[in-house]
Lab assay of single mutants.
Amino acid sequence: MKTQEELTEIVRDHFSDMGEAATLYVQVYESSLESLVGGVIFEDGRHYTFVYENEDLVYE
């Protein structure tokens, strides 16, 4: 099982292909040891929320 830090790095790496991230945040109260819930805000103003669970990243 991966730590939240490892899950955060996986998510950060995925979003790095989409541009320069200004902020990546984790909603600790919705996350667990198995999943990471949060969002990313890019330098150009785009904002996505995400759920990373079971090696699957879903974002909108």
Rank of each mutant, 00 (worst) to 15 (best):
T49S: 07
M18C: 13
V58T: 13
Y29W: 11
H47Q: 06
S31E: 12
I10T: 05
V51W: 10
G45E: 03
L36T: 04
A22G: 10
T3Y: 05
Y48F: 12
E55Y: 10
D44F: 10
L36R: 00
E60V: 13
K2H: 07
G38W: 08
T3Q: 03
T8Q: 09
L24W: 10
E60Y: 13
V11G: 02
V28E: 10
S16L: 12
A21M: 15
V11Y: 03
S16K: 14
H47G: 03
S35N: 05
Y52I: 06
A22L: 15
V58W: 12
A22T: 11
H47T: 05
M18Y: 09
S16Y: 09
V51H: 09
V37K: 12
E53D: 05
D13C: 14
G19D: 04
Y52S: 00
S32C: 13
I10W: 07
D44A: 07
G19K: 03
V26T: 02
D44W: 09
D13L: 15
L57E: 02
V51E: 02
Q4D: 04
E55C: 14
V26N: 01
Q4C: 15
T3N: 06
V26A: 02
T23E: 11
D17E: 13
S16V: 07
L24G: 03
T3R: 06
H14M: 14
A21S: 11
F50Q: 00
Q4F: 14
R46I: 04
A21T: 13
Y48E: 00
E9Q: 14
T23A: 08
L7V: 05
D13W: 12
N54L: 07
R12M: 12
M18A: 05
E20Q: 12
T8I: 15
E55W: 09
D17Q: 15
L33N: 13
F15D: 01
S32E: 11
R12I: 08
Y59K: 01
R12C: 14
V58F: 11
G39V: 14
R12D: 02
E53M: 13
E30P: 04
K2W: 08
V58I: 10
V28F: 14
Y29S: 04
S32Q: 11
F50H: 00
S31A: 13
K2D: 05
Q27G: 05
D56K: 15
F50V: 02
F15Q: 01
T8D: 04
Y29T: 03
V40C: 08
S16C: 14
E20G: 12
V37N: 03
L24S: 02
E20L: 11
G45D: 01
T3H: 03
T23N: 09
E6F: 08
L24I: 15
G45N: 02
R46L: 05
L7E: 02
Q4M: 12
Y25A: 03
R46A: 04
V40K: 00
E53H: 10
D44C: 06
M18G: 05
V11P: 01
E60I: 13
R12G: 04
E53V: 12
E6C: 13
L24T: 02
G38M: 08
V28K: 11
E60A: 10
F42H: 00
T3A: 03
V37Q: 08
A22H: 13
L7H: 02
R12V: 05
Y59A: 03
Y48K: 00
G38A: 05
D44Q: 01
V37T: 10
E20N: 13
S16G: 08
M1I: 12
E9Y: 05
V40L: 05
D17F: 14
Y52T: 02
F50C: 05
L36G: 00
I41V: 08
S32I: 09
Y59Q: 02
Q4I: 14
E5I: 08
F15H: 01
